[in-house]
Design a protein around this nucleic acid. Structure first.
Lengths: 151, 151
DNA sequence: TTAGGTGCAAATCTTTTGCAGAAAG
DNA sequence: CTTTCTGCAAAAGATTTGCACCTAA
């Protein structure tokens, strides 16, 4: 974890930005909740435990900055709030998401299944793909079981 | 066009809703701009030509209703406004979108490229897919040409 | 006559911005 | 010192809601 913070620190400094205590607290929250998709408000709540004086605007500004630096992804699941996802160090692409319409859970697929499609896209449509986003809505295994064996 | 309006009318009536003049005007605007991805504000402007007395709230309520009935898709491209897309009569799935980060244009792919992936998802993850969403960000052919041959 | 609809204005909610002061190189 | 950053409060923008009136089965 410290190593990843260091990386981010250097990334910021290389662009003339500072890793202030507020920004560090925000990054730590993101690291500690890497599995979740936190909204700005969520992050704000969690950061306040570490740095009670922080303002919501700072959180928004930090998330915006991290997003520009491609440290986090800004995601939109259509529920009216933006959510933020730490990018895996190495992946240039979004994860894919499995969103259960029944229980609201969200699972991630870390593999990239789209490379063949992207090649086809460049070939057939002349479209150069920089990034993509793939979400599936449906019913997760747990809810299917629940439906089949109602208690 | 009249046929599709009739279909929608019946769909509404089957749920106890009415196709009021305001709703019909809204649907007509959507039909006439099927290629675009209109925001609620866009729709409002266009509907006002047909029905000047309509209120923005009614447009929102209509789009919400049509969305629940799966007559339109509510889409989110991350620019802060929801956009609405008429569903093709026959397709249960979203289109795929090619969003150019340079000129902001958006192209649609009507084919469904994801069926093999969805099968794999059900097999390997036990996730039952009801719908999906696939967007690509990148550079469209036009902008690539522009980059290669700057005027 | 009764439930569903509408327009308007006000309210709500997320996100952004202006500003004066604080921190860091 | 000078640039970057911060907190606060206000502003902005999209969407929703309360309400009194309207309209069609």
């Amino acid at each position: 974890m410290e190593a990843r913070i260091d990386t981010i620190k250097q990334q910021l400094q290389s662009q003339g930005y500072k890793l202030t205590p507020q920004r560090e607290a925000t990054v730590r929250v993101l690291l500690e909740n890497e599995e979740d998709h936190l909204s700005a408000e969520d992050v704000f709540m969690l950061v306040k435990d570490k740095a009670p004086e922080i303002g919501l605007a700072t959180v928004y500004r930090t998330l915006e900055l991290l997003s520009e630096m491609h440290v986090v992804e800004k995601l939109n699941f259509g529920d009216g709030v933006a959510r933020y996802d730490l990018r895996a160090d190495n992946s240039k692409h979004h994860h894919h998401h499995l969103i259960c319409v029944q229980c609201g859970s969200m699972e991630e697929i870390k593999e990239d299944w789209l490379l063949p499609l992207e090649e086809r896209l460049e070939r057939e449509y002349g479209f150069f793909v920089a990034d993509h986003r793939l979400d599936f809505q449906g019913v997760c295994r747990r809810c299917q079981d629940k439906n089949d064996n109602p208690k």
